[in-house]
Design a protein around this nucleic acid. Structure first.
Lengths: 238, 238
DNA sequence: TCAACCAATAAAATCGATTTTGTTGATCGA
DNA sequence: TCGATCAACAAAATCGATTTTATTGGTTGA
């Protein structure tokens, strides 16, 4: 890791930060899990101070929780939080759409069409040695598509808010992945894909009303899915 | 400092964080100013790793900017950013008000009335050895009043967004303080106080339309004030 | 039996020193 | 005169070790 970071990353701490962030978002590090500084330092082959620095940043981002003199743990998740998060996401994303629709030009439209095309040719899931995982490439493309839709929004602050909420919700999405059964999955995927197309078309037509409706359903889906699994997910409280 | 922190704070790093945050918000540390780790460590009498940790947190909060291998500096300010910030603040705060008005009960109303009363009996400015400063107590009371208005909002995420935007705008407000002349000040203060009263009354009457109008004017004031001073403030770019 | 105490351990917080990287300013040759 | 080169310096990044603080598990005495 130290070597990998020295080559690809600009600094070791940056590498630690990205590495932890990835594991947190994919729920490889489970919500509520203790994050022992020395253990991580040993595992990644870097000094403890870099770990502290990375964890502090992640704390500000809401992915890690800190208790003074008691260290760090992965930020907890809860149904209450997920509901609030989803509702807030819809509100903020709607604000982004309002300006994006007003400012969007033909480049923006092209950007959306392109991102949709890429997304629609990727499978959401893949099997890695028997385990069901979200396809990383799909995840990225999915993020890019939603980003493209609002990319004509000219408010850096609004986009920053949007981005931090998006990250949070990705974490919840990952949470539900191992519990999604093959059989139950198909209709969800179908609905999702349909919604992506409708979102694209509504954006091109500057149809905010339709967009708001679909956002409700689209963002709500993950929330409902996770809620339905609440009893199966050990660390998910009310 | 080390001793002060050991007594009042839970940890040295926490103390460093709060100390730097205060100086950043009051613009005692000027936007764009270099933040040398060793210098700060020496000045506050603590180790460099704690400084790095605090600065990393402040970076995530948008009060500090970091460049890899080039260290930290106070986050820059610009008129463009201020305009965006103000607009976004109004949007988010409006969302907060919507739920606050819907959920607010008599306790909430009492909270507002109380916060207003305290605020209205404090002077905004004070003179500290010949220098014009914003009165710290007023600042706190002002923050509390605005917080009280939306305190019945039940969305933790929305309130978190609101809070980080509020902090940012406080920084801009401080920026304009040394340039506010005694003579020009009175009408502004009067207008502000009137707006506070109108906000309170509109909140009690659940009158969202009036609130939105006043927010526009109230938040816009600082922005206009700073913009008018743009040429006088060295580090304020377009 | 059980709460209060204490020692041993584990972990967090902090430190001082070292290594790495960027910056500055002087020197050289064209 | 000007750009390139490089040494000396300053600052950031990293490290290994120490100090401080929580936690745990066992012992004592009521």
């Amino acid at each position: 890791m130290a070597d990998a970071a020295r080559q690809t990353m600009q600094s070791l701490t940056e590498g630690v930060y990205l590495s932890l962030r990835r594991d947190l978002l994919s729920c490889k590090i489970k919500p509520g899990e203790k994050l022992k500084i020395n253990e991580i330092a040993l595992r990644l082959g870097v000094n403890a101070s870099g770990i502290r620095e990375a964890l502090s940043r992640l704390t500000s981002e809401g992915l890690v929780a800190m208790e003074v003199q008691r260290g760090f743990r992965a930020a907890p998740v809860s149904i209450t939080d997920l509901r609030d998060l989803t509702k807030t996401r819809i509100q903020i994303e709607t604000l982004c759409f309002e300006t994006a629709l007003a400012h969007g030009d033909v480049d923006w439209e092209a950007h959306i069409v392109s991102a949709f095309h890429k997304l629609s040719h990727l499978p959401e899931f893949e099997r890695i040695n028997g385990q069901d995982c979200v396809n990383d490439v799909w995840m990225k493309a999915h993020g890019n598509f939603h980003q493209a839709l609002v990319s004509a929004c000219d408010s850096a602050w609004l986009m920053k808010m949007r981005s931090s909420l998006y990250v949070q919700s990705e974490r919840y999405r990952q949470l539900s992945v191992p519990f999604r059964l093959e059989a139950e999955r198909a209709p969800y995927i179908k609905a999702q894909e349909d919604e992506h197309r409708i979102l694209m078309e509504a954006a091109l037509k500057r149809d905010l009303a339709t967009i708001t409706d679909i956002l409700d359903a689209h963002f709500g889906r993950t929330a409902q899915f996770v809620e339905a699994l609440a009893s199966d997910i050990a660390f998910l409280s009310e």
